[in-house]
Design a protein around this nucleic acid. Structure first.
Lengths: 386, 386
DNA sequence: GCACAGAGCACAAACGATTGTGCAAGCGGC
DNA sequence: GCCGCTTGCACAATCGTTTGTGCTCTGTGC
């Protein structure tokens, strides 16, 4: 009828992919193979037996498809199947290795099931986060993994209720009605605080992350636990900062130095804040650990290599990412070894994830999974000189 | 006819988004507003005037849409418009801040134009890279930014020829027929090499990245330039390694230490390799810079904070990312200030990008843009002791 | 009283896939 | 020779949009 195979057909030889413009469509394949579109579709989707397509025909279709370099349009497919194969991942800052690692694990983990990751960088701004959520929703993502920026999880809860599975990681909120994945911050905070306390520190300044976020609250809780156990308590005025950023750590440190000159140690709620703090301390000529001890939480994998040693509580970030991925997949009802998946990565199937083995609790709306942390002591702590 | 507004209609009050399942479609909106789908579509797309929809009707439609929380399905839209609004970004390792920064800039830069970024992590494997390319192609990405893994750009060139705009960054290839963005590696390499040479180093070991990649070749070239200028030349046997990875740096260092015990300095082609090298040196009890000097290229922003100081050539990564984004956008024919874009980020429009001001050269298939680098000297270099 | 213009909207055909169902052969049994 | 079963495939509806075209009014000029 139309001259469709003129262009695709007159390349030197029928082999190779489409040469230009001409998106190779199923219709083309079908025409060239001399069958109908439906037959072509079934032949290519392994539905040959089911719909009684002869092996001869099937092979013919496959050959033509291969020759033409046919790739089914996922958008048409999505429309029909109501499955976009897209998963949204929204993080506050992808250039932060912590979030990058999480994104990475999700990307690797879902790839085997034919999903792709749509990336969103909220720049630590709630407003942008919301815009991204809308943008990704419009793109029909099938699920969302969010490391929320701040303190407003409401729009996420609403989204989840409206049928789009949402999983939150790291920046988890208290009583949030969403499946969440985070580290065991309380235990970790206590452990890291005890390093200070055992050295005799009592005047401890805290560089806080977003105050209302669960990580911040829980880490504070762990510190309080440790203090209480050691028989003292922390004055609320020794808290400063309100963000998980380097800038916040810098500002908060200066603030604390002014407010509490007697301070002998700093408890940073994240590595970026610790780095900002170090900058501030360096500017004031305060040496670590001679004049000031410092401990922190590991938000990224380079802490190990930093010039000022830093005692940190190390999160198993890839594991956290894998756990989040597993939760996502469960919510998407893809049992590992379902689709074309089950290829190589057995680990992404949740085997190494204890909480997931109890697969029963995976039908939930609100559960909190925790990943254990380890303590890495480096010489950023000494006894106080005062 | 059908009872479509039964479900969407009986939520407590028409306000708020869809409560469950019911994807709010244009048809719903139209029905509720008492108009046809086409009218609804035009009303919502600002085509009211053009198609003589009365302002009354237009407002009514808008209101209903807002009430229902209507969001046009991008997949249906894509199908019709043949524009997916998707841009693929494929990098060897997203958890490497260098690539993460690039991905970030792309994500931020294209967001204003309604594009989203589909992320692919090739794990430094050509095979996976190719699989990802196919996967993203099927998802109908409108353009691809690739930081290729290795040495085979052919499939990318073919892709570009077949009509899918491809831009490559960083891991650029010699004579590759694709628009490329990279740093000015030759100059940078020369500068960093001269730091060694001026201290008297002549026995220099080189930790190479992928041998056939342009960054590796060009950086070697810069080193050779510097050597030649200083009146000596490098033995090919002083090269080791063949990947931009920490492992490669580690292995190559051990190899070189055995092969050339007289070596006094190391020239690492990337920071991960430098880090691997440091590990190897530490294991052998070799101190920096006392026993061995080392210089490197900045692949990530934390070099500044590392415990062993490292003299590096610093790439302006965000700028590289923005440049790549600008090239992408150009190839997509979105002039900044076209769409709903032109919001805030003036910088992403290419203003800060000198090579782009010459907008004429943007219609190309094969151009190489370079971003300047700076030199950051830190005490990882001392005079040789031998 | 009629033609005609413009306003205001509806119809229907795409886009590229999937899938339930229907239709035409071929073949064996009686 | 007819019925019925199997085989092998084609038809057509559908997913949710966009958009060219055509239809029906209302009002005006003459």
């Amino acid at each position: 009828m139309k001259p469709p195979n003129h262009r695709t057909g007159d390349t030197p030889l029928g082999s190779g992919a489409a040469t230009l413009g001409h998106p190779v469509t199923l219709k083309n394949v079908a025409a060239r193979a001399g069958v109908s579109v439906s037959t072509a579709s079934r032949a290519l989707n392994g539905q040959a037996r089911k719909y009684r397509i002869s092996p001869t025909t099937e092979k013919a279709v496959r050959k033509v498809a291969a020759d033409l370099g046919f790739q089914a349009s996922q958008v048409a497919r999505s429309l029909r199947l109501k499955r976009s194969g897209l998963i949204g991942v929204i993080v506050p800052d992808i250039s932060n290795p912590f979030f990058a690692s999480i994104a990475r694990e999700v990307s690797l983990g879902v790839e085997a099931y034919g999903f792709s990751v749509l990336l969103g960088d909220s720049r630590e701004e709630t407003q942008i986060e919301q815009r991204l959520v809308e943008q990704l929703r419009a793109k029909q993502v099938e699920a969302l993994l969010v490391c929320p920026v701040g303190v407003e999880p409401d729009h996420l809860v609403k989204l989840d209720r409206s049928g789009l599975p949402v999983v939150v990681a790291d920046r988890v909120f208290d009583g949030i009605e969403l499946p969440s994945v985070t580290s065991d911050n309380r235990t970790a905070a206590r452990a890291v605080a005890e390093v200070l306390i055992e050295q005799g520190h009592r005047k401890i300044g805290v560089l806080s992350g977003v105050r209302d976020s669960l990580p911040a609250k829980t880490r504070l809780q762990g510190l309080t636990d440790a203090a209480q156990h050691a028989g003292f308590h922390l004055d609320p005025s020794s808290l400063a900062g309100n963000a998980f950023t380097e800038q916040s750590g810098y500002d908060a440190t200066l603030e604390l130095l002014d407010r509490h000159p007697e301070m002998t140690a700093i408890f940073a709620m994240c590595t970026p804040a610790a780095i900002g703090s170090m900058r501030a301390l360096a500017e004031r000529g305060i040496a670590i650990p001679r004049d000031m001890s410092i401990v922190a939480f590991d938000d990224h994998p380079f802490a190990e290599l930093m010039k000022t040693p830093l005692t940190v509580s190390v999160q198993d970030i890839p594991r956290l990412g894998r756990l989040a991925t597993a939760v996502l997949l469960k919510r998407l009802n893809v049992n590992p070894s379902d689709d074309s998946g089950a290829e190589s990565n057995a680990e992404s199937s949740g085997q190494d994830l204890p909480p997931l083995s109890t697969a029963s609790e995976m039908q939930f709306t609100t559960s909190l999974w925790k990943v254990p942390t380890t303590l890495l002591q480096r010489s950023s702590v000494a006894a106080p000189r005062h």
